[in-house]
Amino acid sequence: MLTYADKMEIVRQHQSGAPVQTVPLAKDLGVNVYHVPDWPGDLSGKIMKSEKHGGKSGYAIYVNQAHHSNRRRFTTAHEIAHFILHQDSIGDGITDDGLYRSRLSNAMEAQANRLAADILMPWHLLNKYIDGGTKSVDKLAGIFKVSESAMSIRLGVPA
Results as ranks from 00 to 15, higher is better:
V157K: 03
D131A: 13
S149E: 11
A18F: 01
I94K: 11
N113Y: 02
G45Q: 10
Y100T: 00
N32R: 08
F74V: 03
M1V: 12
V33Q: 12
E51F: 15
M8T: 04
K49D: 06
S152W: 02
P37G: 03
S69A: 13
A66Q: 12
S50A: 07
K46M: 08
L126T: 05
I153W: 12
E79W: 12
E148P: 13
D118M: 13
L120F: 05
K56D: 13
I84F: 10
G91M: 02
I143T: 02
V157P: 01
G30P: 12
G156E: 00
W39Q: 14
I47R: 07
G17A: 15
P19K: 04
Y4I: 01
H124R: 11
L126N: 04
N64D: 07
L29T: 10
E9L: 14
S89G: 03
N64Q: 03
S105N: 04
M108R: 15
L85P: 06
V20M: 07
H86W: 03
L155G: 05
S102K: 05
I153F: 14
R71I: 02
P19M: 02
S44D: 04
L43P: 00
H82I: 01
I119W: 15
K56M: 10
L25T: 00
K145Y: 04
Y100K: 02
I94F: 05
V31W: 11
Q15I: 09
M8C: 08
D42K: 13
A5E: 13
A141I: 00
Y62E: 10
H53T: 04
G58C: 07
L99M: 07
R12M: 05
S50D: 09
Y129K: 11
Y34G: 05
R103I: 06
S149V: 05
T75V: 14
L99Y: 13
K46A: 03
A116L: 01
R71E: 08
R154D: 02
A112G: 00
S69N: 09
A26F: 07
A60I: 00
E51S: 15
I130Y: 08
K46L: 07
D97F: 04
L25C: 02
S152G: 11
D96Q: 05
A159C: 13
P122I: 01
I130G: 09
A150C: 04
M1L: 13
L155E: 02
I61R: 11
V11L: 12
I143L: 06
L140H: 04
A107C: 02
K128F: 07
V157W: 01
D92R: 15
Q111S: 13
I94C: 07
Q13P: 06
N113Q: 09
Y100I: 00
N127T: 08
H53W: 14
E109Q: 14
D97A: 04
H78D: 09
H67K: 15
K46Q: 10
R103H: 15
Q15N: 12
S136N: 12
